[in-house]
Design a protein around this nucleic acid. Structure first.
Length: 485
RNA sequence: CGGGGCGUAGCGCAGCCUGGUAGCGCACUUGAAUGGGGUUCAAGAGGUCCCGCGUUCGAAUCGCGGCGCCCCGACCA
């Protein structure tokens, strides 16, 4: 087949998507299994991808006035249990420290599944007046949620993330903060990871334990399944009440502050893999690619070798002569391996551009530029390439976004009755835009009978009179259903 | 927790039924040639055969017990 000669060490997406995903993660050396069940080791190449999105997110978080802080890994049992819905929601997933210092602890310590409880307890002394608000904090840390079935990056018992926690004097201001958190996630997903997302509100059944409401961004993977990529919660005064946080407002009234929290995790590395990857492995957007351009020298004789080396050196000098060019993450692969081996190696790792420089190229003063996403080849003069490379990377980034968007649109369907819902869901999958009356019963029935869940109630779902696909009751807008990770 | 499968070199496996020198492929090391889609040849290194007890002259192999992992069904960033 056409695949012959190209990367063959991984399962094809069409044969078995989960196996493909696993192969890519392991063989591209993003991560490996650890001695601890359900946990993972993030390897240098995978961690570099995480760092890229982490740093971008951190810039957004700081630019909007939040400060990074740190809170302990351990949460005393009594604190975790203060907010009723919160305990109930997290209880099955909490790992406990019961012994320390050689004896059983008087009070068990939870390994944080998230930090709302300990933060609320801690900051109650920090807030006395409306002048102390808003309090805008962010934590970069690890959390533990005991999982029954784990998958590298997508669901591990321990994962890395960012959790923002804020407190506000008014409900209005807190709601705006929830919007802000979600907007940051949308931007990072779409503009940095090139993953188009649907922003919307989670149904009651799917919201965060302890929240008044939860917003999410939802993305489509290349197997047409959905992935929740980030969530932002309005907590109301739930945690403030549970911890007894109050402040004196302008009108001399004592009030509970309104809280928010929002989180974005290493799961997004998995999203990036599954949103863009193909049968040859990773396809990385330039913004997150640890290596954006790889140069593969090709030579036989020593004379060829030095001519090729000279050409590459001149090209690098030209590239580094401009500010944009200096930013390009470029690697020249001089390893003692065959060119074909290197092509496969870097394609598996998703490097956007490859430049082949061999004797024929040197003679013509050019490099052969090969794009990862479509393997298109083009001979480009090396001096021109140096000037153009930054622009081409930008264009490539946009192409990947557009490609993902087109894919999502091609796999989104409007369905108006339950029979066609089941049929489309079964035969084609993807996102199903359908009317829903808003009841938890209908939501649960669809989930049980079709495996699909309501991903969210999109903000940009136009007002449209319709009838719930399950019980026919009136609905004023469509929601997005899909099978999800 | 219920059902199925598996533990032998870094990885993937054969050997076990029928007990007798622990093997194959990939990866790794060294050398030479090769080099425009995973290059070839040669030489080499690498093992508590998951653990324990038992049977036996002798156990990776047979018996008993234990441990661990993976897949499938109820929760989740």
């Amino acid at each position: 087949m056409a695949r012959e000669g190209f990367v063959t060490a991984i399962t094809r997406q069409s044969d078995d998507f989960p196996a493909w995903y696993n192969d890519v993660v392991l063989k591209a050396e993003l991560a490996s299994y650890s001695p601890v069940r359900g946990c993972m080791v993030i390897r240098p190449y995978g961690y570099a991808i995480w760092e890229s999105m982490r740093d971008e997110l951190d810039r957004h978080i700081k630019a909007t006035g939040h400060s990074n802080v740190y809170f302990p890994l351990f949460v005393p049992r009594s604190l975790l249990e203060k907010e009723a819905e919160h305990v109930e929601g997290f209880n099955p997933q909490v790992a406990w420290v019961t012994h320390a210092g050689g004896k059983e602890l008087d009070e068990w310590l939870a390994i944080r599944p998230t930090s709302e409880a300990i933060i609320a307890e801690t900051i109650k002394d920090w807030i006395q007046s409306y002048r102390d608000l808003p309090l805008l904090m962010n934590l970069w840390n690890n959390v533990v949620r005991w999982e029954l079935r784990t998958r590298l990056f997508l669901r591990t018992s321990e994962f890395l993330w960012q959790e923002a926690h804020t407190f506000h004097a008014t409900e209005q201001e807190a709601r705006e903060e929830v919007d802000l958190g979600l907007e940051i996630y949308r931007k990072v997903s779409e503009e940095w990871l090139a993953i188009p997302v649907i922003t919307g509100r989670k149904s009651e059944g799917e919201k965060f334990p302890g929240a008044v409401y939860t917003y999410s961004i939802e993305a489509m993977m290349r197997d047409r399944k959905a992935l929740q990529a980030g969530t932002s919660h309005y907590l109301g005064t739930n945690f403030a009440q549970a911890a007894g946080i109050t402040f004196l407002d302008r009108d001399n009234q004592r009030r509970h502050p309104h809280g928010t929290s929002w989180g974005f995790s290493t799961r997004m590395v998995g999203a990036t893999i599954m949103a863009h990857g193909d049968d040859s492995g990773l396809v990385l957007p330039p913004k997150v690619a640890p290596v954006q351009v790889v140069v593969v020298p090709i030579f036989r004789s020593e004379a060829d070798r030095s001519a090729v080396a000279d050409a590459i050196e001149r090209f690098e000098l030209a590239l580094r002569s401009t500010p944009e060019g200096r930013e390009v993450r470029l690697e020249v692969d001089w390893r003692e391996e065959s060119p074909g081996f290197k092509y496969n190696h870097w394609e598996l790792r998703g490097v956007p551009f490859r430049i082949e420089v061999g004797p024929r190229d040197v003679a013509a003063g050019q490099g052969t530029l090969v794009r990862r996403v479509d393997r298109s080849k083009e001979a480009v003069p090396l001096d021109r390439l140096a000037a153009e490379l930054p622009l081409r990377l930008t264009g490539y980034q946009q192409e990947l976004f557009q490609r993902a968007l087109d894919f999502r649109e091609a796999n989104s369907h409007q369905v108006d009755d339950y029979e066609s819902f089941k049929r489309v869901n079964e035969e084609q999958g993807g996102f199903l835009w359908a009317h829903w009356c808003g009841s938890a019963e209908c939501e649960a029935q669809v989930n049980q009978e079709t495996g699909a869940t309501i991903r969210n109630i999109p903000f940009d779902s136009a007002a449209e009179a319709g009838r719930c696909i399950v019980d026919g009751r009136p609905s004023d807008r469509r929601v997005v259903f899909a099978r999800a990770y």
